[in-house]
Nucleic acid binder design. Structure first.
Length: 921
DNA sequence: GCTCTGCCAAGAGGA
């Protein structure tokens, strides 16, 4: 049986005499059933005592195949020959993490901090891996090599490599693979699979095996190894995959490592074993070793968040016996130790950063690791929830019926399935998702991208075919990983002057208007125009602040104040002065919206005339992002990474304006770029590390946002919840401008938000804006109930909240929409907003107009908005506690806002009571 | 008890 639960106490190590001779043991007391049961003692025998050394009270312990033993009248448990002992099984360790941990625990830590940099061996290694996959799928070597090298055009160009030399090298590597494949017994039972995604609930492991051959793992290494034995850490990696296959009952007895640089060409040069393939036995003892190492890693990660010390526990290098002088990371290791004043086996070099910076680093390191745990909790739901629960949680589409598996271009597969009509989920077209045969964890699962999601059909593209019966949200750690790297770059690589501002040691500085280049608005020149933007003082001031900023500028843009327009003017003004500008935002949608405003103002035509030599291929604008992420109308300026290396690198290096999400800014390609100014939109929705990802790439930065609207989306409760935008605007009010004239809402609609969130400073830009009404839409207000007119109204349908729905309220909302449409309002001019997805779905079934959650509505508006608040009885719940969400909901309407909710519930809270008073006035 | 977007992953090198 399995024993699993939090550890209550860990006993002393003992050695006892048994019938098998002297044996070590250690007792660990746990509360089984995940803490629900009475404490029991579990005896860990033999080498599992090493894992017990890492165990601490509070950690979770899992012992599989334990046997019950009676000792002094008490029932306890003990490990058997078949037992696995796993610490913190909920912590999902990546297989490549174990690989580096085994080399040196500190290397694991350093890799986490600085990510995989852009360097040639990595890029080449990736290309060879892809060619390997192609060969397994039966493609011709030559065709594959050309194709895959072309795909890597941009990265190779940034590294200064030419197509031919890379092709030659990849060809040599691939030839070794091909030769080995050819001499193998490619008979019927020589079954191959490439790229196998594995997640292990038992061992707390995840990873992707390069290939499986007859059920045994094959790892490709693009290096040379003339030793008889494979490198130890390579074996460890392959053994991890073997372990996970073992859990699925495959029981592989060997692992294969394929060193592609072991070719005949080298045969003259040196002696040694030059066969590219090296097989090794995967015995029980080796697998146990791998599990123990994984436990040590997971225990360290637990201590990072739980040890009572002032600073998070990080590896020092003393945990292992690697020799620092042999290590290629030695310099990096010493620099990190020196700068962050960490103890390390390699020693320290350089001066430590000030305490405030070190504390900041520690604080956000912990916060990001907490966020990682929350992501792991999402993974756990893949196997802990039943498919039905998963579907009810909106995280999966189940009961799909496979219709077709078609091989398409690039040796990928298109999987098509019928889906039940009413199935809803948070999955959307373009998302990366886990396609499976019904069981994503112990069955067959493949990572793929959703290319079509209709009412009764779903299409996914994957590397390998799967019977598509279920599609799950795939929780990715990429955001945490890139944020960690951005944090590292900001604190350890950031300039002193930048950090002076970030850490409150110096006020941001600004250039005098007189110092602007001749001809710029406000400069002394004869032809200088008066302003960057006429007829809106605050907007003009915002552009001035941004172009004059020596460090940073903060633009506060409440709803409807022309934020996007101001951004477009700012970018143009910056480029006019010869700056190279990075435009970023959290979402693809925000990036594309800002780009759209820039293009609508004729930016490209202006660049062509103002900077004829510097416009680059895409007319001055380059959008970096995935094909599915970038909106259709921006595809023409999207950077295609495939192509001639030099041309591709030049495109990225020379574009005056580059636009990308902050996640993309943290990618290894973007980390190679530099800019004069980074302008970040919707900065109030970004965490501090997320903002760093963009601003790290530039000398100066401009943040645009509104901290009275939605905050960053994070799962953990910690420092990540406050944006850098908010912190800086509170620290340096003088470095900010608030856009105070709004072009969206009538006077009546904006009044509440202005008073509650903007100290009454928000006002309509013109009398026309202030005075707009339903009548402007050609509607006769007399044909509508009085509470549906007059700018703002309130309706209490006397419904009942049921979970996150309120059916009666949904019916009433649909009826109200119906009334507006009947009165002559174009359905396109009506929008419905609700706080819960369930209520959105409930209302969506009853009307054809746009219905969405508050979060999804941020950034857009409609002439008529109906808000469904759902709550009855009381207003308990996080969603109602954050008033910023209400601010967003109430400021989407231009001419008419109708609030639907329960008057009693709203009256029970002072804020909502004020809202009610305003709505009923 | 809730809302939400990012984005696949991948590494050579030696005593």
């Amino acid at each position: 049986m399995n024993v699993r639960g939090p550890i209550v106490s860990v006993g002393e190590a003992r050695t006892v005499s048994t019938s098998y001779g002297e044996r070590d043991l250690r007792e660990v007391r746990v509360r089984p059933d995940r803490g629900a049961g009475e404490p029991v003692d579990v005896t860990l025998w033999g080498k599992w005592t090493e894992t017990a050394e890492h165990a601490e009270t509070g950690m979770e312990l899992l012992v599989t195949e334990a046997e019950a033993d009676e000792y002094r009248g008490e029932t306890g448990y003990a490990t058997t020959d078949e037992s696995w002992v796993v610490l913190q099984p909920d912590f999902l360790v990546d297989v490549t993490g174990i690989r580096s941990w085994v080399q040196c625990p500190r290397m694991y830590y350093l890799n986490k901090l600085s990510g995989i940099p852009l360097n040639y061996p990595v890029v080449k290694g990736t290309v060879v891996h892809e060619v390997f996959g192609d060969l397994l799928r039966g493609m011709e070597l030559e065709e594959s090599v050309e194709d895959r090298v072309a795909d890597a055009g941009l990265e190779l160009g940034l590294l200064g490599y030419e197509t031919e030399e890379v092709e030659d090298e990849v060809r040599r590597n691939a030839a070794a693979v091909e030769g080995w494949l050819a001499q193998g017994t490619l008979s019927d039972d020589d079954t191959w699979r490439s790229e196998f995604t594995l997640i292990s609930p038992t061992f707390g492991l995840k990873g992707r095996a390069d290939a499986l051959r007859r059920g045994t793992p094959v790892e490709l290494k693009t290096g040379k190894n003339t030793k008889r034995e494979p490198r130890f850490h390579d074996k460890v990696q392959a053994a991890c995959y073997a372990l996970m296959l073992d859990e699925r009952g495959v029981d592989p007895d060997i692992g294969t490592l394929l060193y592609t640089k072991n070719t005949a060409l080298d045969r003259n040069e040196e002696s040694g074993d030059l066969a590219p393939a090296k097989e090794f036995t995967v015995g029980r003892g080796f697998l146990e070793f791998v599990v123990r190492e994984r436990n040590a890693l997971a225990a360290m990660e637990w201590r990072a968040l739980n040890d009572p010390g002032e600073r998070p526990t990080v590896p020092t290098g003393y945990e292992a016996d690697a020799t620092c002088s042999y290590c290629f990371e030695q310099d990096a290791c010493m620099v990190v130790s020196g700068r962050l004043d960490q103890e390390s086996k390699a020693g320290q070099i350089g001066t430590a950063v000030p305490d405030a910076e070190r504390d900041y680093f520690d604080r956000f390191y912990v916060a990001l690791e907490e966020e990682r745990r929350e992501t792991h909790a999402e993974y756990r739901k893949l196997w802990e929830q039943t498919p039905e629960e998963r579907a009810a949680d909106d995280r999966a589409l189940i009961d799909l019926e496979p219709v077709a598996q078609t091989e398409i271009a690039d040796r990928r597969w298109e999987l098509r399935a019928r889906k039940p009509d009413d199935a809803v989920s948070k999955l959307r077209e373009g998302d990366v998702a886990l396609a499976s045969d019904g069981d994503p964890v112990s069955g067959h699962g493949e990572l793929g991208r959703i290319t079509e999601l209709g009412s009764d059909v779903v299409v996914v593209e994957t590397d390998e075919p799967v019977e598509l019966r279920r599609l799950d949200v795939y929780p990715s750690e990429i955001s945490v990983d890139r944020s960690l790297t951005a944090l590292h770059d900001a604190v350890l690589k950031g300039s002193e002057s930048r950090k002076d501002v970030l850490f409150g040691r110096r006020e941001p500085e600004f250039r005098e208007p007189a110092d602007r280049p001749a001809g710029s608005p406000g400069s002394d020149g004869p032809d200088a125009p008066d302003a960057y933007i006429d007829n809106n003082e605050a907007q003009n001031e915002a552009v001035e602040l941004a172009v004059d900023a020596e460090d940073c500028a903060l633009i506060h843009g409440p709803p409807g104040t022309g934020k996007t327009y101001t951004i477009a003017r700012t970018i143009r003004a910056l480029v006019a002065e010869g700056n190279r500008v990075l435009l970023s935002a959290f979402t693809n949608r925000a990036v594309d919206n800002a780009l759209e405003a820039l293009r609508d103002q004729g930016f490209e035509e202006w660049v062509a005339s103002a900077r004829p030599d510097g416009a680059g291929e895409t007319g001055g604008i380059l959008r970096v992002g995935t094909e599915t992420g970038v909106r259709e109308d921006m595809q023409d300026v999207r950077l295609v990474q495939r192509g001639d290396p030099n041309a591709k690198a030049a495109e990225l290096r020379d574009a005056p304006v580059v636009a990308a999400t902050t996640a993309t800014c943290g990618s290894r390609v973007m980390r190679e770029c530099d800019f004069d100014v980074a302008l970040v939109d919707e900065a109030s929705q970004l965490t501090e590390p997320g903002t760093h990802a963009a601003v790290n790439l530039a000398d100066r930065f401009v943040l645009v946002g509104d901290h009275e609207q939605l905050p960053p989306v994070v799962r953990a409760e910690n420092d990540l919840r406050t944006s850098l935008f908010q912190r800086l605007i509170e620290t340096y009010p003088d470095a900010s401008v608030m856009l105070d004239r709004q072009y969206r809402m009538s006077q009546r609609i904006q009044a509440f938000a202005s008073a509650e969130f903007y100290d009454g400073a928000l006002r309509p830009a013109t009398p026309e804006v202030a005075g707009q009404t339903l009548a402007d839409l050609g509607v006769d207000p007399d044909g509508l109930a009085p509470e549906l007119t007059g700018g703002v109204g309130f309706v209490d349908p006397d419904g009942e909240r049921d979970g996150n729905r309120n059916v009666r309220e949904a019916e009433r909302v649909a009826a109200i929409v119906e009334a507006y449409v009947a009165a002559g309002v174009d359905p396109d001019d009506v929008g419905v907003i609700a706080p819960f997805r369930a209520q959105v779905a409930e209302i969506g079934r009853r009307t054809d107009v746009t219905v969405d959650t508050v979060d999804r509505f941020q950034g857009s508006s409609k002439a008529v908005i109906v808000v469904s608040l759902v709550a009855t009885g009381d207003l308990d719940g996080p969603i109602f506690e954050d008033h910023r969400r209400v601010n967003v909901a109430l400021t989407r309407a231009k001419k008419q806002l109708t609030i639907v909710g329960d008057a009693d519930a709203l009256g029970s809270d002072p804020f909502y009571a004020r809202m009610l008073d305003w709505a009923r006035r």
